[in-house]
C-alpha cells in the first residue's frame, strides 16, 4: 500500500515538475523562437538556493548558528525539523522566502542571459546555455561549502509541521504550483501579450518596425521562464529532501524536456504533457522493475537512454511533427495544384 503511494506520488511529482519545465520551454521556443538547451541552469539555481538558503536561515532564526549546515548536516537537519514540527508559521515563511529568492535570482539570471541571447545565432545560443548550465553544475559539485559539493546534503523538510500528512502536503503543494503555472501561461498566451510574443517569433524585424522593443521583450521573457524553471528545480529538491547537484544532469533536466516536446508535439501544451506523462511513467516502471533484472552484468537503468533514443528516432522518422502536432487552422487552397498532385 505504501509502496504504491510512493510510486504514485513520485510519478505525480515528476509530471508536475516536468510540466512546469515544458511550459517554460514552450514559452521560450514555441512563442519566441529562443531555443535553450541549458534549461538546467535556472533549475540548478533553484536547487542550489534551496540547499543554501532555508537551512541557514532556519539556523539563524533558532539561534543555532554555531552549527554549519553543510558540515554538521545530519545534526542540523534533525534539530531543525524537531523545531519546525511545532512551528508552522516559520515553516511557511521559510518556504515563501525561499521561493521568492529562487524566483528573483533565477529571473535575474534570465535577464542577464539576454545579453548572449541577442548576440548569438539560435543553435549557438542553445549550446551556450547548455555549457553555462554544465559549468554551474560542475561548480556546485566542486564547492563543498555551497551544498555539499559532490556528496550533497539533506535539506530540511519544510512540511514537517503537517505531521503525518507531510508527504501529502509536499505533493499537493507541487500540484497546485503546476496548476498555477499552467493557468498563468494559458492566460498569458491568450492575452495581447501572447500575440506580442508570437509576432516577435514570426517576424522580429516587423515587430521592431512597429516600435516594439524586441530585446527588452526577450529579456523579460527569459526572466519569467527562468523564474519558472528555478521554482521547478526547487520543488524537485523540496520533494526529494536533498540537494545533490551532481544528479541534475543535462540529460535529465535539459534534454528530456525537449524530447517531451518533440515527441509530444511542439507548439501546443497538451502534446508536451502527453510526452511528459509517457516518459515519466516509463522511467518509473524501469526503476521499479530494476530488481527483476539483477542477473544482468550491468545496471538496467542504462537501457532507459537506449529506449529513449529509439523512441525519439522512431518519432522523428515516422511522426516528425510529434504525436500531437500543432493544429493549424484549416485553409482553403486557392492555389493551383502542383505537377505531382496532378499525376496522382
Amino acid at each position: 500500500m505504501i509502496g504504491i503511494a510512493v510510486i504514485v506520488s513520485g510519478v505525480l511529482m515528476f509530471c508536475c515538475v516536468y510540466a512546469i519545465v515544458t511550459l517554460s520551454v514552450n514559452l521560450q521556443y514555441g512563442y519566441t523562437g529562443i531555443s535553450n538547451l541549458g534549461l538546467y541552469l535556472p533549475i540548478i539555481i533553484g536547487v542550489l538556493t534551496v540547499g543554501v538558503l532555508p537551512g541557514r536561515l532556519a539556523l539563524a532564526v533558532y539561534g543555532l548558528s554555531n552549527l554549519d549546515f553543510v558540515n554538521d548536516n545530519a545534526k542540523a537537519v534533525a534539530l531543525l525539523e524537531a523545531r519546525l514540527q511545532k512551528d508552522p508559521l516559520t515553516s511557511v515563511m521559510l518556504l515563501v522566502v525561499t521561493l521568492i529568492v529562487v524566483g528573483g535570482v533565477s529571473a535575474f539570471a534570465g535577464y542577464l542571459s539576454g545579453y548572449p541571447a541577442l548576440r548569438l545565432p539560435g543553435d549557438y545560443l542553445a549550446l551556450f546555455m547548455l555549457c553555462l548550465g554544465e559549468s554551474l553544475r560542475l561548480f556546485g559539485m566542486e564547492t563543498m561549502s555551497l551544498a555539499g559539493g559532490i556528496y550533497g546534503i539533506s535539506i530540511v523538510n519544510l512540511f514537517v509541521f503537517l505531521g503525518p500528512y507531510a508527504d501529502l502536503g509536499v505533493i499537493s503543494f507541487i500540484m497546485v504550483s503546476a496548476a498555477i503555472a499552467y493557468i498563468v501561461c494559458d492566460r498569458m498566451c491568450k492575452s495581447p501579450l501572447g500575440r506580442l510574443l508570437r509576432s516577435v517569433r514570426d517576424n522580429e524585424l516587423t515587430a521592431q518596425c512597429v516600435g516594439k522593443n524586441v530585446s527588452l521583450i526577450k529579456k523579460k521573457l527569459l526572466a519569467i521562464t527562468f523564474a519558472m524553471l528555478g521554482v521547478a528545480g526547487s520543488l524537485f529538491a523540496l520533494f526529494t529532501n536533498a540537494v545533490v547537484v551532481e544528479g541534475y544532469t543535462r540529460s535529465d533536466f535539459s534534454f528530456w524536456p525537449w524530447l517531451m516536446m518533440v515527441i509530444g508535439g511542439t507548439g501546443n501544451d497538451s502534446g508536451g504533457l502527453l510526452g511528459t506523462g509517457a516518459l515519466v511513467i516509463m522511467r518509473r516502471v524501469m526503476i521499479v522493475s530494476k530488481n527483476y533484472f539483477g542477473f544482468l552484468p550491468f545496471d538496467v537503468l542504462w537501457l532507459e537512454p537506449i529506449l529513449l533514443g529509439a523512441m525519439l528516432a522512431l518519432v522523428l522518422i515516422f511522426r516528425p511533427a510529434g504525436i500531437l502536432p500543432e493544429k493549424a487552422p484549416h485553409v482553403k487552397r486557392p492555389y493551383p495544384k502542383t505537377t505531382e498532385e496532378h499525376r496522382t
Binding site: 493551383p336 495544384k337 496532378h342
Partner: peptide, 17 residues
C-alpha cells in the same frame, strides 16, 4: 521552382520537373 502546369522542352527532351 515548383511547376504547377505546362511543359519545358530542351533539345528534344521533356525536362519538366
Amino acid at each position: 521552382t515548383t511547376i504547377y502546369n505546362g511543359s519545358i522542352n530542351f533539345n528534344g527532351n521533356d525536362i519538366t520537373g
